[in-house]
Design a protein around this nucleic acid. Structure first.
Lengths: 138, 138
DNA sequence: ATGAGTGCAAATAGTTTGCAAGCTG
DNA sequence: CAGCTTGCAAACTATTTGCACTCAT
């Protein structure tokens, strides 16, 4: 089990969530994926009969609330998740054709939050995804 | 009919798209909305029997391709659209509770595109939405 | 007239919910 | 052993598609 998974498992415990075989498997699958995955894709990446697809949905939702995974959105609205890569917040650049994903460390989070606070908003979060056509597909 | 709508209609024509009563109504509804609307919400904002919900979906999709409207995503993945407000690209700050929306002019589009081009990507676009709890709901 | 646009019905995709049974802490 | 979790079935929401008909150009 990778450090990433171990770390995630610890966080789950510290958040009062239980650690099951299914959850371990889901975290492992995410840790081995270079690009963010949807709940269904995550489930598909699991060994057969690891768990029901619904469980993947429920777990990922829990994980996000617990801050164990980060959530993004595809261009079509599909929700995707990824482990924090152990290095906090970041974004992705995704190829529209082949789905290839690159990590982008650029983020205007602080600026955004300042603006949002200026409007009196609290509990600010944001979703950002960049799309394009990669060299191989262009 | 507002300038915004007139402008949009012209753009439709120049893009080779046809201008129908339904499309005019959809553009008018969007022009009168302060916040981005989903296809269904846009349809709901139309006078009864203006058109079928499906038409709203299809038109908004066309409008986006033609560059007449801008598309965003809600936190839950729902696609939303808005007229360019006549002032190009911008983003929104949306209240999770009441849906109230503020416009944000801050955008790191150029930086994003530079990074994306660095990866060899083309036809770069991005989706970004900021969410929080507004003063009234906090 | 001719092809873009529309309505209606039906199919999809992604995700959520209810409830009884199972397993973790 | 209490309650979080899971599985299975079913409901739901947002969106898309097929096809015949209509209308803008």
């Amino acid at each position: 089990m990778s450090d990433l998974v171990r770390q995630a498992v610890d966080k789950l415990r510290s958040e009062g969530l239980r650690v099951t075989e299914q959850r371990r498997a889901i975290l492992k699958a995410l840790s081995q994926s270079e690009s963010p995955k949807s709940a269904d894709e995550t489930h598909a990446a699991l060994p057969v009969d690891t768990c029901d697809p619904v469980t993947a949905y429920r777990c990922l939702e829990q994980f996000e609330k617990a801050g164990v995974v980060e959530r993004g959105v595809r261009e079509n609205g599909t929700k995707v998740y990824c482990l924090g890569h152990g290095h906090g917040h970041h974004h992705h650049l995704t190829c529209r054709q082949c789905g290839r994903t690159e990590r982008i460390d650029l983020c205007m989070g602080e600026e955004m939050e300042k603006v949002a606070e200026g409007f009196g908003f609290t509990e600010v979060s944001h979703v950002m995804e960049v799309f394009g056509v990669c060299p191989s597909c262009g």
